[in-house]
Design a protein around this nucleic acid. Structure first.
Lengths: 337, 337
DNA sequence: GTCAAATGTTCCAGCGCTGTCATTTCGCGA
DNA sequence: TCGCGAAATGACAGCGCTGGAACATTTGAC
């Protein structure tokens, strides 16, 4: 049987309540007693019983991670999870994963989930992070949350990185290589990522004094299939682009595939870049030039910030983590300049 | 304030204890009363307080998923997690993820984890699933566990699929295309996957009446880098193979890369197949022929079986799920036959 | 119709901790 | 040295549920 708080109290010659104070980092314990109690805790290898703690304190010590049901290869979520778990490690909090379809009624899903687990904090990933109704419901329930890369302004606390600047940096890299006709396959409408990356693309063109050509921007939805369609559309253009900036890595892979189908070499005949730096970016041949999305850091920060905000009034702020553009082998000078 | 068990009892005109029996599926409640109580539960939208339940019943309702700290792109774990979460959905159990380095002292790590969370069941993924010391410790602690694809015979309950047969099927596919010189890049020593896949390779050669040629089998460790090294070694052979069966998809991707470096076309000059069917297999050009590893199903089954075994004596059995060989575009007839 | 066995129900204590509030101790100035 | 207010400490109830024992009711055999 593991040690209980009572055992620690006896061992340290203090009262249960005082031990509790030490455990919870409350003030009003003299340093000397505190040290003695801490020693007893270590000596007895005492670990508070989480259930008893939750019950008595009416707290769950739970952080929920809400994300869309991953279809396949959601490396993004996996990395985020790693970051979240790492951040929880040295806290009494513990993460509960809750994947759920954005197609279901999200507010009802939240209500059910909250009733069941009573999380003290929630972390939301797009698309849920963009769902204003959902965020409002959480505010109503007085549950602190932080979002990852939310495009919604009303978010309580958002962690992300400057996707617009990263996209611009990628496109600038293409411009510097000598490309003038640069295509873009966009992400899915409604996602912040779509807008930011598209805007970054436009920024870079503008900075380089290249006129925006609407025919060089085609609609995608972040899937491989949409990348194929987008690449076809761009490469069928009377004056095809010499480089394509795809809105994410999957669509970039699709673009490479379509280029190969047309016997175009990458990067010889066509430069391709993606966005996200998924593991596939390194497995591809050639390795994909892309922007590295710092998922682990974002997960970690989301946890740290949201835990800080528990018990405090709602703060609204945006936190940005550094990103990195990975120049690899899928981009090169255009053949004819 | 949410409803408590007492409210349900009052509402249904029964005692608290009887409601508790209904909640826990215990016998000794007349169908009529049971139905009335169930109606009250729904009417009041009652959900038992998990902390109170755990505290009073001295149970945690926790299933731990132990895995190695994923370096990157661990789609395998992600899919497993999805399966595990799905299986927990309609049980009172809830999953705790615990990634930890296999290089640390695993037994100490387990002891710490168990002390903190007191999981009622544990699911282990390789390499931890192969760690006999770890499994013994869990037996000592009287914690039921199930393993995924463990190569250890002493495992309590293992969920996997017939990797040997799957590998043989892949190699047979190459043989049927007309290949006679088929190379193999192995997995990391110590992993069951390495042995099973290698044995499957040998089985298929044997069945086809092709003599085993040790020079066609080179050491890999499941990483991309080792795949490059392995492919180099095989393609440098005086009589290079016309097809390479890599021990996993990452090494297959590396083989494709190395082929491209040498201006060999895939599958024209060299057929390549992998194993696992990671998302990258579909993003590659050409799409990779590979064996689909049914991770979700394995995660789900592991949960279901291990939950059944809680409270019962240890059962030792192996459960196998169906796999699927995905024939795609990275394999074709050899050029010269 | 009777009685014992079987089935179903109620009562009560207590799981291990925290919150409230009463009590003790301390530090400091007079 | 004493007295006082503030800080430190402790006693106790109770969080919501389950387990076991005691009690009540039903069932079935004769």
């Amino acid at each position: 049987m593991p040690a209980r708080i009572e055992d620690v109290a006896t061992h340290a010659g203090a009262s249960i309540k005082t031990v509790s104070r030490v455990l919870n980092g409350l003030p009003s314990v003299r340093p000397k007693l505190r040290a003695r109690i801490e020693a007893s805790i270590r000596a007895l290898n005492y670990i508070p019983n989480p259930s008893a703690r939750s019950l008595a304190g009416n707290r769950s010590y739970l952080i929920a991670l809400l994300y869309d049901n991953p279809t396949a290869g959601s490396n993004y979520i996996m990395e985020l999870i790693v970051g979240v778990l790492m951040a929880c490690k040295n806290t009494p909090y513990h993460a509960v994963l809750h994947p759920f379809e954005s197609s279901d009624d999200p507010v009802a899903a939240i209500d059910g989930f909250v009733a069941r687990h009573r999380p003290e904090a929630v972390i939301l990933v797009p698309p849920h992070a963009n769902n204003v109704e959902l965020l409002q419901r959480l505010d109503q329930l007085d549950i602190r949350y932080s979002t990852i890369s939310s495009k919604s302004g009303r978010t309580c606390l958002d962690v992300g990185f400057d996707e617009r600047k990263a996209a611009a940096e990628i496109v600038r890299h293409l411009v510097e290589l000598g490309h003038r006709r640069i295509g873009h396959i966009t992400g899915l409408k409604g996602h912040g990522a779509r807008t930011w990356r598209l805007n970054g693309y436009r920024d870079a063109l503008h900075d380089a004094g290249i006129d925006f050509d609407a025919s060089l921007v085609v609609e995608g939805d972040f899937t491989f299939a949409s990348g194929i369609a987008g690449a076809k559309q761009l490469l069928d253009l009377p004056k095809a682009p010499t480089a394509i900036f795809a809105g994410n890595d999957d669509m970039a892979c699709a673009t490479v595939r379509e280029a190969y189908e047309r016997k175009l070499s990458v990067p010889g005949d066509l430069s391709v870049c993606g966005f996200d730096d998924t593991p596939a970016a390194l497995l591809m041949s050639p390795e994909l030039t892309t922007a590295h999305q710092p998922c682990r850091a974002m997960g970690r920060l989301a946890v740290e910030h949201v835990l800080n905000s528990i018990g405090s009034p709602v703060i609204r702020k945006k936190v940005q983590v550094p990103y990195r553009v990975q120049q690899r082998d899928s981009t090169a000078e255009p053949k004819s300049r």
